[in-house]
Every structure is written in C-alpha cells, then in structure tokens.
Design a binder for these strands. Structure first.
Lengths: 132, 132
DNA sequence: ATAAAGCTTCTAGCTACTGGAAGGTCAAGC
DNA sequence: GCTTGACCTTCCAGTAGCTAGAAGCTTTAT
C-alpha cells in the first residue's frame, strides 16, 4: 500500500505518516524506486497512533503504548498506569480551562460591548480594582 | 527598576520579560551600561500580559488587547469581540477534553490493571471490536 | 513526447517560551 | 588593587508535533 492510500485507511495526512517514520514509530519497507510501502501491520500501527493521539496521548506515551502493544508478555497494569496518568492530566487541563472560562465569562458579561471606551475587561487585565 | 525586581512585581520570569521585549510587547529604556530599566508603565504592561496570558489569551490577542488598552478612543465592543472569540475557543477545548476524558475513563475502568497481558485499552486503540 | 499526479528528501516555520554558554558590570571584602 | 559573587547582556539551541514549500525523481495516461 502506498502512502496516499494509507492516508485514507489510517486517517492521517501523508506528512504526519512520514513524520512518524522519522521519529521511529512506524518503519515501512521501500520499493525499488524508493517509495514507501506499507504492510497491513504498518497501517494497523498508524491507526493505533491516530486513535491514541485522538485521545490526547503524547507521542512519547504513544511510543510506550505501542511497545506494550508489541510485548505479548506485558502487564495490563503498565498500560493502565499510563492511561491513568493521562486521565489526571486531562482533568487538570479541564480544571484550568474552567477557571479561565469562569473569569472570562464574568468579564465578558460585565462589558457593555458598544462604542464607548470604558471596558471592564481591560480594567481587570490592567489590575484596576485589585488594590495595585 | 531592573529586571530581577520586575520579575517579582510582574510575576514573570526574566527570560519571558526579555522575550516579550524581543517580540515588541514591552520596550524598556536602557541604562548607560546597557541594563534594561523598567518604568512603572512598563511594569504595568507586563502585569497586564501576565494576567491576559493567565486567562489563556494568545500572544497576538495580547498584542491586540494592549494596543486597545493604549487607544483612548477604543470601542469596548472590539475588546469584547476578542474575549468572546477566546471564550468560544476555551469552550471548544473543554468539550474536546471532556470527550477524551469520557472515552479514556471508560477504558481505564474496563481494564483490570494487573499482571495479565489482555488489556481493553490496547484493544480499543488497536481497533479491536469496531469491525475493522 | 509530454503533462499530470504521485513520490522522494530537505529546510524552515509555527507557539511561547526555556536553558545554557560566553562574557560585561558592579559592589563588597581583603 | 584584586578577587569573588551576584547581577546583567547577547546569542544559539531545543521543546511538541506537526505543516508548508521547494527541488527533483517516477509512473501513468494521452
């Protein structure tokens, strides 16, 4: 299978697929003309990567997950540990964004948003009203 | 005020303060020896940046907000538009993370996480069970 | 024969910093 | 006067994860 076809089946752009090869995640063979040729196993790994990245796992997490996937004698606890750490990280990010959201929504609500120059959003950013 | 002191009052590392100068957000004067010297106005702008970045505004948003802040004849609607667009973006990210969270929490829950090799997390990433 | 589509490698750029090296400046202590 | 240490400076490189684009080879169709 050539790269253009793999784009479809893995759901990844060709550039990304080549990049994943560059960093050693997938190693397709080459045809005599130098073209990459992907086995079903390669495509499988790429799809694995596409899903894992879609769940927000870092490239290094993906590398670890792939190597656990290759290991027949792996312990599911190892996989679960990676997933749980990532889950904690996602929760942390959600909390962080919710904090921003709350402040910002409050400010947007307070701003009349017309042609007048006074603006609670800028006032807040400038620190007006916090005693500085 | 020298940079080490500004670190404290603006709540930003010196490296970041210099970086903000490099990209034209803050322009401190220099002493004869070449050292940066910050006016209260400079510190004010840095604190503004610290807060805006803390709310997740991009550097380019910050640039726009600062220039609106400088403009006495600005319209608050312009500020509000930037803030609302950012709010939408935050909401989008929260939704995205929540989607990941849900899938991942489900998988972690399904994984027994012991020394056995079978693992629903890897099975899902590999696409087992989705008909492919 | 030639044009279009597909492949290759390589370099550079994106965001927003961060770390580190090499070196100038200044105040204190001996 | 000299040294030590804490400042300060600039410049270069690296982080994550691609993405854009240039220059050039191969294959296929007309």
């Amino acid at each position: 299978m050539q790269i253009r076809e793999v784009e479809q089946s893995a759901g990844l752009p060709a550039k990304t697929i080549r990049y994943y090869e560059e960093i050693g995640l997938v190693r397709p063979n080459r045809q005599d003309n130098g073209y990459r040729i992907y086995s079903t196993e390669d495509v499988h790994r790429l799809r694995f990567l596409q899903r894992a990245r879609g769940l927000g796992f870092s490239i290094e997490d993906c590398r670890a997950l792939l190597s656990l996937y290759d290991e027949t004698g792996r312990e599911s606890a190892d996989v679960r540990a990676i997933a749980e750490a990532h889950l904690d990280e996602i929760d942390r990010k959600i909390r962080e964004l919710k904090g921003m959201r709350q402040t910002l929504a409050h400010l947007v609500h307070a701003c009349h948003g017309d042609d007048r120059p006074d603006c609670p959003i800028l006032d807040d950013l400038a620190g007006i009203g916090d005693g500085v």
